[in-house]
Design a protein around this nucleic acid. Sequence first.
DNA 1: GTGAAAGCGCTAACAC
DNA 2: GTGTTAGCGCTTTCAC
Lengths: 347, 347
Amino acid sequence: MKPPVKTTIEDVAKLAGVSIKTVSRVVNREPNVRESTQEKVDVAIKQLNYKPNQSARNLASHYSHFVVLIYDDPSIFEIPSSGYITRLQEGSLRACRSAHYELLIHPCNYRSDDVGAELTSLIAQVRPAGMIIAAPLSNMPNIVRTIEATGTPFVRLSSGSTTTKEFSIATNDRDICAEMTRYLASLGHKKIAFIKGHDSHKAVALRFSGYKDGLSQSSLPYAKHLVMSGDNSIGSGEECARRLLEHPDKPTAIFAANDDMAAGVLRVAMRLGIDVPGQLSIAGCDDISLCQQVYPTITTIRPPLAAMAERAATVLISKTRSTELEPGTEIIPAVLKIRESTGPAPE
Amino acid sequence: MKPPVKTTIEDVAKLAGVSIKTVSRVVNREPNVRESTQEKVDVAIKQLNYKPNQSARNLASHYSHFVVLIYDDPSIFEIPSSGYITRLQEGSLRACRSAHYELLIHPCNYRSDDVGAELTSLIAQVRPAGMIIAAPLSNMPNIVRTIEATGTPFVRLSSGSTTTKEFSIATNDRDICAEMTRYLASLGHKKIAFIKGHDSHKAVALRFSGYKDGLSQSSLPYAKHLVMSGDNSIGSGEECARRLLEHPDKPTAIFAANDDMAAGVLRVAMRLGIDVPGQLSIAGCDDISLCQQVYPTITTIRPPLAAMAERAATVLISKTRSTELEPGTEIIPAVLKIRESTGPAPE
DNA sequence: GTGAAAGCGCTAACAC
DNA sequence: GTGTTAGCGCTTTCAC
């Protein structure tokens, strides 16, 4: 591959009749450039269609215009339906685009022994301006520490609020689940069941807490037989639903810790000929695309994934070269998506 | 951001007692290095945990270790359900990972005036080792020409086979649709309807041709009243299904040009109380995740998106620095996914 | 405000 | 086989 003929900073300097350093100043919007000089240079840049070579820039400045988004690898294959990754990318890309940064995606398998080596290597080679760490990676100390040790600015994206020394962005998992529960209660439901998810994900515990918060805020008793444990899959949602609906004191509403399980509940209801939401209300969490594709459409909680990622990228980009990120957690609230699967409790 | 202390090629050279050029040779697996020297260097590299700085490498060699995947921007937002992008990324990442390349994703809006400028700028700044152009961008001459003009190696991914001067990877859209039609015919269906999609996508025409091929290969007549035109949406699928099923000579099988429309058909069938597949068989195309999430699961055609992208990335990576890509189209066949929505024709 | 010189860490071209 | 010497195109430092 031959090096395509490219215009360099020198060409611009020559045309504008200034030194390359001045061009560099203009390109980087540094202070101390007379306005008239600035204009001359800008004209030359436009005329030659000059684009600074990133590699040269990185090499000289020890800092690149790349933001890296890392996330758990298998998720992309196992639950392509969820759109989780897609939404994170959407937000990251939005921020990158407007700041003329590029996004590099790097799924990694945290179960593998050498994630650490892989990440250090990535960082050494690319020298990203910053890294966005998506959940569940963001909750793994070894991963976070590894990145921290390289000195690369990073932002953790996590579903629950977490108290740490780093800057992170979270959503109000617990509160919004309480809100969903209160919403169901407000529809007249007295027996609201909850299907817990797999313990591995931190959000799960928070969601269950939110459910309990919501019950007590609605002055509803917590009943053990109305709580089941699934494993986040549709199948487990079906299983739990079947057991809940067989119980003599069966619920009039089922709130599942994720949408896949909610979809499982819906499937069982359909098969048993139970009218949704007439006889049974169903709510989920995550707002996967399926929610809008099934009939009835599923009421759920939409986490602000794109917004979180966008904010993360924006922060990283703006903080580059300047001060460190202040510790703390920024919360971006999730929203209830009321759809067809929830309605007034049956008489 | 301070430059983290990094080990450079010089450190390695010093430790191994050789010149930096020799280290460079070892790192790049160039020939003409004595095995003993090689080992010495490898040991030093390992010991110092040396990682070559990509920026320096790029700058000196005019070529980077980045592969760029470009695709139509809105697709990521409008149809997150399809998993189209996700699958392309999955394949690209697989190839990149094994070759120690990184993947940069760059959705672009082809409707905007300055896609061209955007792409040239991207290329000038990043100097990708290669670019993978996903459909529908891959079918837009202005985009392809722009990239070609920069001299960047690229591979077009397209759904239909296309005769062009460049190297591209396609799938057998037409043939596989014929196969699906023959499959339906083999189940005893005599009246197989087809719902066409939106004309904008090239694949659409090919799929319709495949349907007609399949009919004639099965010695079935082509009937105009069994063909409807949708716009790729669920809604249009419902609309078309309703009209098809109201017709006095209604079909016993409906084959839709994409899964969204097939899902629409399924919805109408459910509402009308038509048993699927007992009274009506339904088939789609694309294998979006919804196909496995609805009941009954939908028979469809799965395009080998990940495989196509993986192959594209592999080709780009291997061809870097060497010969040009030979013109031609490589076909990776799609596969029929027979699921629950298709069955023997009713008596 | 502006410029000259010295690298950033690597590879290319050529010597030996 | 191996080393030497120039750069790649930019930023940094410091002088003016």
